[in-house]
Amino acid sequence: MEFRYEIEGGNFSRAGHASSAVKKILKQLNVDNKVIKRVVVALYEGEVNVVAHAEKGSMMVDIDEQRIRIRIEDSGPGIPDIDLAMQAGFSTASAAVREMGFGAGMGLPNMKKNTDQMHVTSEVGKGTQVEMITWFRQ
């Protein structure tokens, strides 16, 4: 089953809407609470990344009996050095964004920690794509 959510760049007040919606779906499917929690943490981080850095983005969610696959795509600045971005604490966020409680440099590392598989591709000046898979049963 597929779901699609649009993410608006720069609108922090709406950050979390897509992850909330996915959370509600997983609860209805009787997915284990701990798995839901991991998925939602990763999704929320991913959503905030798009809001913080990109002009716009979308989240495609595909769920079957075994797993959830999420693809987040954005049109934005892209990531010049993905390995560096994956390091805990590395951040390019502006002071204004940090003041709002975002931009601590934990986004991508936290997402990786909370998913079973994650793959990031990016093109500078165009955008970033993150694909994550989490299995319902470990």
Partner: peptide, 23 residues
């Protein structure tokens, strides 16, 4: 104890089918 009232079915596969029908 957790007592979720949100689940459509205890079986994830059946719940998925039910969700497709809901949609």
């Amino acid at each position: 104890e957790p007592r979720s009232m949100l689940m459509l079915d205890t079986d994830t596969g059946v719940a998925l089918q039910k969700m497709e029908q809901v949609r």
